[in-house]
Design a binder for these strands. Structure first.
Lengths: 242, 242
DNA sequence: AAGTGGTCTAGACCACATC
DNA sequence: ATGTGGTCTAGACCACTTG
């Protein structure tokens, strides 16, 4: 055991400490998303540990979804969530085309208690509230209400929503420096209000699936609260348990 | 590298081959569920590999949910699925009490095409079909239709259903030697037929969550097809994505 | 005290990707 | 040819559980 590096915390394995250290460097932006981090050999030498120990640490970060390893090429910092993960809960008639997005409204408003709790911010903190419709093949399929805590997302308060891209998360990264790394979705069923139903071209009271999302950045801060509603009959999801 | 043991398949790592071999011995019943398998030291010596290689193989089996390792105690073959995993999709008012089960009907009937496909058996194979109500705090909460392929579950064809336990999977193990190891649940949405609604004490046409399950044994054979219906408003499920 | 799994080392060689 | 991650070895020592 190298004597110059002692485990800071008793009861924490060396590889766990290494993983935490590397995680901090990634979060700090030392290696931006998509770039390669140094080779395991070099990292092991830097930290004066055996190769196997460093590999164990990197394995941990892979499990946490922070990095990806590719045989022969290197180890890369993962991109933020960027696909259209909300659509995975629904089966709309079409091919795998990307959904269009139309912003219906945007205002600044104090976070009500449930949203404040979800975002872990003080009750009444000012937020940006978006109303948004998503369309597939010209047909509206999802109606969303999105809350973004305001000091952080100030850059979005005045830009022209008509020019926004169809996917928000990449814009969060470029315009606000917020990288969505993880999200928790809570699924339930309900029925549409008249206003919601109008947007989705469905009758009022129609049954809908409700997905309540909390999105987190690399540091683990909750940075988005979103509620999405879609036709319950289009909902489907598969889970494997063991 | 020991010369007496060559990898059977080119391109398959030694630890993967070891894992497959151990898996086969577990599936064959050499170590029943709940019992400990030999120590990693002994297994490594038996197979003439280094300790690290055997550990890697055991790690694989842990990932597959086949074994559990406990520091200081040993490595154990996991029990079959035995909880009440269907209830995790629903939030019924009560505490964490175990659900009661009432068998409403049982008959032998040829598998229709969708069920045959689900169970991967020939179209028209004879099956046991169960109708079953599950109750929590005296209130009916789930209505289930269960299909079991018949040569395998013959032991259940005549036994008194009134004496069956509230959980089926442990009975599958004791009476039929079938160990449910993995299950795939497909979640959808629909509405109750008049007959279903009557059983659940809900109005006909009431919205319901539909969980279509396929259960598999250790060998990976599909051994149960089940459709469960419950009040859509009681449905809730949480997923984390990364 | 004895036996188990968990951590760590310091090497060697292999397989894959790129230039 | 070079550099990357993946596999494998043969040890040592530590931490936990049980008689």
């Amino acid at each position: 055991m190298p004597a110059d590096i002692v485990p800071i915390e008793p009861g924490v394995s060396r590889y766990a400490a290494l993983a935490a250290a590397l995680r901090a460097r990634i979060v700090a932006g030392e290696w931006p998303a998509g770039t390669a981090i140094p080779a395991e050999q070099q990292l092991a030498a830097e930290h004066k540990v055996a190769l196997g120990t460093m590999r164990r640490a990197l394995e941990l970060l892979v499990e946490q979804g922070l990095i990806e390893r590719v045989h022969g090429r290197g180890t890369f910092v993962r991109q933020s969530l960027s696909g259209a993960p909300m659509l995975r809960f629904f089966r709309f008639g079409d091919s795998g085309e990307a959904p269009l997005s139309r912003i219906l409204g945007r205002d600044r408003i104090a976070a009500p208690a449930p949203v404040a709790r979800q975002l872990d911010i003080a009750n009444g903190t000012e937020c940006l509230r978006l109303k948004r419709l998503r369309l597939l093949g010209g047909q509206p399929c999802l109606y969303e209400e999105i809350w973004l805590p305001l000091p952080l997302f100030a850059a979005l308060a005045k830009s022209d929503t008509a020019k926004w891209p169809d996917l928000l998360y990449p814009m969060f990264a470029t315009k606000c420096g917020v990288h969505v790394h993880r999200a928790r979705d809570e699924i339930g069923f309900g029925s549409l209000t008249a206003a919601q139903a109008r947007q989705l071209a469905l009758p009022a009271g129609h049954p809908c699936a409700i997905v309540n999302r909390t999105a987190y950045d690399l540091q683990g801060r909750a940075i988005e609260a979103r509620t999405s509603r879609g036709d319950a009959h289009a909902f489907h999801y598969t889970v494997t348990i063991t």
